[in-house]
């Protein structure tokens, strides 16, 4: 059975299309990163999974349960960190966890253990309305962990976390995945996705433009090699000339006379030869594996941050 099954999901707000016929399957046990620039429709998709929003068309299922028709049953096995929430006024951190425990009938869970795990045990007795954004994020992650859910659904989980907090979040996600939970999270911060995900989906303007493993995405980028070349001079025509070479996908100037080229492995020497023939000297030359960020820019045509 699949953890998440989305079929032909569309969402329109008036004349704007937030999601356009998205088909997506997340298998049980995998860690899936849902990637896209802000406003691409990631939260809309997650909100439909949570039944905060109704799809205009199509349907979504969590472990085979329809998210709109049987929302409560669907959420029974899910731990959620939504977007745009606020903590419950007048409840302490501990009471928040207890609330989640009662709603999920997970009565053998010790709230303090959970708070300990997300690193805010010291603040257990304080009103959560006084928490910082990062602490609130940890608290809600804690609520999501209650009852050992089979699926963790996290919308931009690292929002408000400092680098240490983000690393701890990744550690917890890894632990949960090892326990057997499926993890689905959205992010516009690429390193995090790259660090933990088995597969990623890239959403752009409401359309799912790619779903693949990170290696798969690299391959579909034509070997995924990136050349960084420092030249003695950069002429106006140089970029255009390189772009015409077979196997070259993108060319960009990134500084005075430094250019970045993404291309197939075979094209590397052709580029250097072509530059030489044009009378341009290559001062420095290095190759990098294309990072997810490059792919992301490739797919969405915009920087994620």
């Amino acid at each position: 059975m699949n953890a998440i099954d989305a079929t032909n999901v569309s969402k329109h707000y008036g004349s704007t299309t937030a999601l356009d016929r998205v088909d997506l399957t997340v298998e049980e046990g995998e860690t899936f990163g849902f990637l896209g620039p802000n406003g691409a429709g990631k939260s809309t998709f997650i909100n439909i999974l949570l039944d905060f929003a109704k799809p205009s068309d199509g349907q979504v299922e969590i472990f085979g349960t329809d998210c709109q028709r049987d929302g409560v049953d669907a959420r029974e096995r899910v731990g959620v960190l939504p977007e745009g929430y606020s903590v419950i006024e007048r409840l302490t951190g501990r009471q928040h966890i207890e609330y989640a425990i009662r709603s999920k009938d997970a009565h053998d869970t010790n709230p303090l253990d959970i708070l300990d795990r997300v690193g805010i045990r010291d603040a257990a007795g304080r009103k959560a309305s006084g928490y910082s954004k990062g602490m609130a994020q940890r608290l809600v992650l804690g609520m999501a962990l209650v009852g050992e859910p089979d699926l963790l659904l996290l919308d931009e989980p690292s929002t408000g976390l400092d680098p240490n907090g983000a690393a701890e979040m990744r550690r917890i996600l890894r632990e949960e995945n090892e326990r057997g939970a499926t993890i689905f999270f959205s992010s516009h911060i690429l390193e995090q996705v790259e660090a933990v995900c088995d597969r990623v989906g890239i959403l752009q303007n409401g359309e799912l433009v790619a779903v693949d493993t990170i290696e798969g995405l690299r391959e579909s980028m034509g070997g995924g090699t990136k050349l960084v070349l420092t030249l003695d001079e950069l002429r106006d025509s140089t970029l255009a000339e390189i772009e015409t070479i077979d196997g070259v996908e993108t060319v960009a100037s990134v500084g005075d006379s430094t250019i970045e080229v993404t291309c197939t492995n075979d094209a590397k020497m052709d580029i250097v030869v072509a530059l030489h023939q044009a009378g341009i000297e290559v001062m420095n030359f290095k190759t990098e594996e294309a990072s997810l960020e490059d792919m992301f820019i490739e797919y969405t045509g915009s920087r994620g941050r």
């Binding site: 959420r75 006024e89 609330y99 709603s103 809600v140």
Partner: peptide
């Protein structure tokens, strides 16, 4: 905070 409640079952 309604979203937090509705995120639970």
């Amino acid at each position: 905070s309604l979203l937090l409640s509705l995120s639970l079952p």
